[in-house]
Design a binder for these strands. Sequence first.
DNA 1: CAGTTGACTATCT
DNA 2: TAGATAGCCAACT
Length: 98
Amino acid sequence: IWQTVQAIPEGRVASYGQIADLAGLPGRARLVGKALGKVPEGGWRGRVVPWFRVINAKGEISFPTDSPAYKRQKEQLEAEGIVFINGRISLRQYRWQP
DNA sequence: CAGTTGACTATCT
DNA sequence: TAGATAGCCAACT
């Protein structure tokens, strides 16, 4: 899972389900979320994991809008040029296509 | 050991 | 387009 997440290019995003499929775990989107939650801030074993490039299938960030985590993720994505419209982004435009 | 709980999704109204 | 529903499954209570 982490390997797959690391493969997401800058300025692109992927959904939890998409990561699950690519990682060989079809139908286990929730497991991906859990795995990402376990990654320490500094990354895993020296590798940086761009967890902020992973969002849900609707193109929204999967955190409450008022949470600190939400703001953090949104800022990181915007810093890569991704634009939010009504709290969501255009998957058609930013979805990572391997 | 049974029930609950999510960083989720596809499908149907 | 948006809400409700039913699968999903490892980790906790």
